[in-house]
Each structure stands twice: as structure tokens, then as C-alpha cells.
Design a protein around this nucleic acid. Structure first.
Lengths: 344, 344
DNA sequence: CGAGCGATTGACAACGTTGTCCAGCCTCTA
DNA sequence: TAGAGGCTGGACAACGTTGTCAATCGCTCG
């Protein structure tokens, strides 16, 4: 009796607590706790009664209280750029699988490429006392995380390294991948190659640009600055940029696209262009095989998995200095990069 | 002093608490709470001292304790099928945006189409006391959620309705969309049309099949049972199914694909087929426009947004019986459905 | 000059769980 | 039959925060 209609103050539902279960089962509070947590030292008969009461009341343990008491939340946070971007879905999923294997839940949030929002999100996750944090940086200064890391929040950066702090990072070889992709175009006879990429303050954007310049330099080719277009990867901007490259006084005959969104837009723009233009894009895209689009593929799931595994190793007590892991990329030649350069 | 090196028992880090901040600032515990929460009634001078102490100690409020005290977590859970599926990324993102607008965080988990895992996840989220739950069902019996709903967890189902309980649901018009897509094929002269879809115990799978049958019946066309293939949407199974339809004694001349994954695989299989076969798929796919694939598009983001908005209306106290909202679909004719049927 | 009032502040309990520690009971043996 | 030892169960404090309430202080108003 009296387990009903307690509390009329601040709470919505009227969730039963262990105390209620104990009362109903006629046992002590701690005994219920033992049953719920599968701890030994409870008679089968008592256990049965407790289970019955749990069933009857619809009791579910309050993990907030548990966390408060135990100090660990079995939750990790993932701050990424945009879950709607097909690059991050598989990455997030891979992190989730690793977390699940370690009995942890995943909270993820999108920064929308806004450094302030990244910080707001990351700190909100810390306030919830996530055990660890995986961050795909939008900003380039992560000193705001220093107190958190000192306080024991394991932190791993993915896709781009941390800014102004020393932390674990798992990256793709943006430089090498871009260099290989551009070299592929050069090998097929192209001399005037355009580069459309992300803002250079984003690490991957800068590295891919560097790879482009390296490949051109190695081949002894000049780079005219109007061939390089950096900035937002919105369809409007990219579309305008690509058109610009194609209508310049010395138009490019090939294009390197700095990420998946650029590639998608560039393909659309090029499809409307009269003469064929070669294209290699960074990141694979669904159906690119059917469209014959050559890409430098990175393995988003592997990035996520590697980062998550490192995170849990840290949580399991692995020490040592922060490390940087770089995963290789893979050139998938499918035709679009092999379009011959116009002669003359 | 003495705020350092307390606690050596169960905790990892040594996070400062409000008590520590209070001690350092020389004020009471509650005053710190007031400052942290922006409550009125604190002298600017006191506030400054508190902020100073917070800064110096790197204090961050422990939301677990806060939640325990307040009863609300400002967190909503999203149980979906697979975050790596491009259909769910935008949906999840849309939910996140609405949650953010309401000051809430989002925890999401993938059920991997496994009903048991769906249940495990949903209940884990309830144990964390999410305020609300958005579920894309993998199973067809959700009675396990009854105690939670009674206890005040707002719950909205998306993409598929709840099984064996009465709850809010936001759906796409699978029946109408499939019927329209198949009618489109019929209007272009096809008579033998195949259907490759999901398991019929999945609501959308069953509805789309029903739409297919309705369109065929309305046109007075027979449906041979070997034209219908239901089951896993793995590439292997779909590939085999499509081949089967094309090599049957009476091969189909057109195909309706029951969801995005089926469409992608079917496109690949058909690309390797000598004669052209018409195709209409349910769900839009990135780059489908360039490949000229006709689809019945549903708006994943709108599904997520609508569901989240309903959820927060419930959380804000909206009463009334559970409702079912059905969002329309849109046929995007791009050529693949208009391939003429072979004459004779 | 005293009462009263508002503004500021802090002491204390409570949220629901788990870890510690002790009490009671039962069984087995001498 | 008494004592030892093992097993089971419960009382209590603590986790870090917020709501309640009362105390204190500096003013103003009569």
C-alpha cells in the first residue's frame, strides 16, 4: 500500500523506485538492488518475489542515480559535422558498434561546421559526464577541452586533428590521397587541373590542397591561382566555382573535388557541360561505380572503428602519449579520371 | 584548501563540485548553484568571485545529479534501424535539430533490424530517463513499452506504426506511393511487373506490396506469384531475386523496388542485363537524377521533423488520443520508369 | 528612532541508487 | 546442546545537485 500517488511536486510520471519494489516484495532496499544487478547472495525464493514485484510495478532502474553513485556513465559522445552527410552515417554507426561491444551507449550531435556549436555540444556532453568523447573538429582551437581531459574524459579526434592541444587522432591520409588522385589525372595527360575544396582552416581541406600542389609540382606543372577554389561546399558555391574554372581564359581540362559534397555537385555541373571534363573526387559516393566516377576512397567506418577502439583502450587504462594514426586511402579508377585531355 | 586530492575510491578524475567552488569563493553552496543557473538574487561582486572560482577549478556542473534532482533529463532517444543507411541520416538530423531548438540532446541507437535489440535499446534509453522516445520499429510488438508510456515517457513511432499498442505515429504513404509508382509503369505499357521488397512483417514492406497489388488489380492485370520477391534486402538476395525475375519463363519487363537498398542493388543488376528493363524505386537516392532513375520519393527529414515536433508537443503537455499522421510521397519521373515495354 | 521590508545568502533535506558494515539465522560439528 | 561459520538480508551514508525556508543585513518609512 501507499506506493501509489506519492510525490505530486516536480515529477511527471510516478515511477516506482527500488524502495517501492522492496515494500511490495517485503524485503529490504538493498536486496532489490542485488537482484536488479544480478549480485550473488539472494535466495531463489526471495529473488522470485522481487522479480514479481518489479514486474507488477513496472519498475526500471534509474540510471541517473546509478551514475551519480558509481561515477561512470557507460556513455560516450560523438561530435560530428552533419549526420545527414553520407560520410558520417557509417562512421557514427561504426563507433556505435564498438561502444555497444563495450556496453556503452552513444550520444551524438552535429556541429553543423560551426566551431561555437562544436564547443557547446562537447561541453554539454561533458556535463552529462560521458566517459569519453570522439570529436570531428569544426574549429581549430580545442583548449576548451583541457579541463575535461585533465578531469579524465578520454578524448579522441577523428578525421581532423585537435587544434592547440595534444590529443589522440585518427586521420585519413588526405595529403597522400589527393596527391595520388591528382597524379592519376596527370598520368592521363592532363596539364591544367582545377581544385575545388573546403575552407583551408579545415585540416582536411588544407591537406588535400597540399597534396594537389605536391602532385603538380612533382610533375613540373604550374598552378594558376584561379584554378584553385576554396570555401563553403554548398552546391551554389561549388557550382559557380566549377563553371568559373571551365570558362576561364585558360580553362582546366580536369578537376579534383575535395570531398563528397563537392564531387556530387561537380558531377551535376559537368553533366551539363558540352565537352567532357575529367574528374577525380575525394571520398567514395554511393552509385559512383555506375556513373563511372573515379574517386580516392577513404573508409569512414574504419575511421570510426579505429577511433572508438582507441577511446576504449584509454578508458580501460591505457596510458602513454597521444598518438596520431593515419589510415590509407585507395584510388578507385572508374573512368572519369581517364577521360583523355583534349590535344593541342 | 583541501579541495585537492579528495576521494581516492571509485572515481577516475577528480572533478570539482559546487562545494569546492563554494569553498574557494568563500560563499555558500546554494549561491554557486544560483550563479551556475543564472538565477537572480546574487550581487555582481559575489557572482564575479564565483565565476573566478569556477574558472580556476575548471568546474562543470554534473548533469547526472541535476537530472536526479529535477526529474527531467532534456534528452530524447531515437531508435532507428541503421544510421549507415542514407535514409536515416537526414531523419536523425532533423530530429536533432528539433531537439536542439527545445534545448534537448539526442541519443540514438541502431536496432540493426533486430526486434530484440530494438527492445534492449529502447529500455536502456528509458533507464536513462529520456523524456521522450522516437522509435522506428524493427519488431511488431511494442507492449514492452507500456509501463514506460504510463510512467510518462512520450513516445512517437516513425516510418512504421507501433505493434499491439496505441501510440502516435508518423508515416509515409507507402501504399499510395507504391500504387502510384506501379501505375506509372503500367501507364508506360508494362504488363509484367516484378516486385522486390522487404519482409512483409515489416509494415512498410507489406503496405508497398499492397500498393503494388492494388495498382495491378486496378489495371486488370494478373500477378504471378513468382514476380513477387520478399525477404532480406541484402545485395546477395536482391541480386538473385532480380536475376530470377528476368530469366523466368515469362520474364518481367519492369521492376518495382521496395526501398532504397533494393533500388541500388537492382540498378547494378540491371546495368549488367542486356536488354533494358524499366525500374521504379521507393525512396530517392543520391545521384539518382544523374542516372535517370525514376523513384517514389519520401521526405525523410520531414518524417523526422514531424515526429519530433509531435513528441515535444506531448512533452509540453498536449493531451488527446494518439494520432497517426501520413505524409505524402512524390513520384519523380526521370526516365527509368518510362522505358517502353518490348512489343509482342 | 523603531518597525518593517526587500534583497541577499546559506543550512538542510531530498532525488534513487550502490558500497559498507553488521545482525540474524541456519546448519554443521564436537 | 552450544558454538563456529556461512549465508542472507537490511540500515545507513554518500554521490552532487536543487527546492524550501529561515536568517541576516541594510534601508526606508512612519
Amino acid at each position: 500500500m501507499a506506493a501509489i500517488a506519492r510525490r505530486t511536486d516536480h515529477r511527471y510520471g510516478n515511477r516506482p523506485t527500488m524502495k517501492d519494489v522492496a515494500a511490495r516484495a517485503g524485503v529490504g532496499l538493498k536486496t532489490v538492488s542485488r537482484v536488479v544487478n544480478g549480485e550473488p547472495g539472494v535466495t531463489p525464493e526471495t529473488e522470485r518475489r522481487v522479480h514479481e514485484a518489479i514486474e507488477a510495478l513496472g519498475f526500471r532502474r534509474n540510471d541517473s542515480a546509478r551514475v551519480l553513485r558509481k561515477g561512470r556513465t557507460a556513455t560516450v559522445g560523438l561530435v560530428l559535422e552533419d549526420l545527414a552527410d553520407p560520410f558520417y552515417g557509417p562512421l557514427s554507426r561504426a563507433v556505435e558498434e564498438v561502444a555497444r561491444a563495450h556496453g556503452a551507449l552513444l550520444i551524438n550531435g552535429s556541429s553543423a561546421e560551426d566551431p561555437d556549436r562544436e564547443q557547446e555540444l562537447a561541453l554539454a556532453l561533458c556535463a552529462r559526464r560521458v566517459d569519453g568523447l570522439i570529436v570531428i573538429p569544426a574549429g581549430d582551437d580545442h583548449r576548451y577541452l583541457e579541463p575535461e581531459i585533465r578531469a579524465g574524459v578520454a578524448t579522441v579526434f577523428v578525421d581532423r586533428p585537435a587544434g592547440r592541444i595534444d590529443a589522440d587522432a585518427v586521420l585519413s591520409d588526405s595529403f597522400g590521397g589527393a596527391r595520388e588522385g591528382v597524379s592519376h589525372l596527370i598520368a592521363h595527360g592532363h596539364r591544367r587541373i582545377g581544385f575545388v575544396g573546403d575552407r583551408p582552416r579545415i585540416h582536411t581541406g588544407a591537406e588535400r590542397l597540399r597534396g594537389y600542389r605536391a602532385a603538380m609540382a612533382e610533375a613540373g606543372l604550374p598552378v594558376r591561382e584561379e584554378w584553385v577554389s576554396l570555401g563553403s561546399t554548398s552546391p551554389e558555391r561549388v557550382n559557380a566555382a566549377v563553371r568559373g574554372l571551365l570558362t576561364a581564359p585558360e580553362p582546366v581540362t580536369a578537376l579534383f573535388a575535395g570531398n563528397n559534397r563537392v564531387t556530387v555537385t561537380a558531377v551535376r555541373t559537368l553533366a551539363a557541360h558540352p565537352s567532357p571534363v575529367a574528374l577525380v573526387g575525394f571520398d567514395d559516393i554511393e552509385l559512383a561505380d555506375l556513373l563511372g566516377i573515379t574517386v580516392v576512397a577513404q573508409d569512414a567506418a574504419a575511421l570510426g572503428r579505429t577511433a572508438a577502439e582507441r577511446l576504449f583502450r584509454r578508458l580501460d587504462g591505457a596510458g602513454g602519449a597521444p598518438e596520431r594514426v593515419v589510415l590509407g586511402t585507395k584510388l578507385l579508377a572508374r573512368g572519369s579520371g581517364e577521360i583523355p585531355a583534349p590535344t593541342g
